[in-house]
Amino acid sequence: MSSQSLGKTFTAGLWDSNPVLRLLLGMCPTLAVTAAMKPALTMGLSVIFVLVCSNIVVSLMRNLLKPHLRILMFTLTIATFVTIADLYLKAFLPDMSAALGPYIPLIIVNCIIIGRAEACASKSGVLVSIVDALGMGAGFTLALCLLATIRELLATGKLFETPVMPSWFTPWAGMGMPVGAFVTLGLILALVSVITNKSKS
């Protein structure tokens, strides 16, 4: 496959079929871990790791898969890599592991990963699968960071736990609560649909 179409595969994940902003997949971590930048970034990177690994493995065994055992194999692969990611966080980033809690193991049921295994990796070669995983993962991470930037800035006046807002700023406590997550994401999605409608017409 030419490098141009590989590039296209990569950028598709960033905007045209961005998993969070366009396909509305993987909403649960998107809403749950975006109260601050650090957990959001950790989550994004973990998802990239799992997505790349599972796409590679699925792509390698795509010709051996039996149709009715397909989903089981996907789940098994994903669960293995999620466990590895979880152990890594527990060992080297214990604070993040505590902050993310059950949302790391919940990557197993993240529709993005099983969706990519089904739609891309089980049909295409290793290289394309890796690029696709990186694109989708990057798109997911970007969307998470966008949401987390807004929420952390407004909820605490900080970014990466460093104060950035002027002293007169009153933190919006609501932004740190579940309601902040839902409303911010709702407004971002509205903005996205305004932008896409404009570029269409």
Partner: peptide, 26 residues
């Protein structure tokens, strides 16, 4: 089901190795 069995063994080993390596740290 051979693929399922083989990969279960491989994944199990992978997990066992990772766990053994990182458990003391955790």
């Amino acid at each position: 089901s051979w693929l399922l069995m083989v990969s279960s063994v491989v994944f199990g080993l992978l997990l066992a190795i990772t766990d053994a390596a990182w458990k003391p740290r955790i």
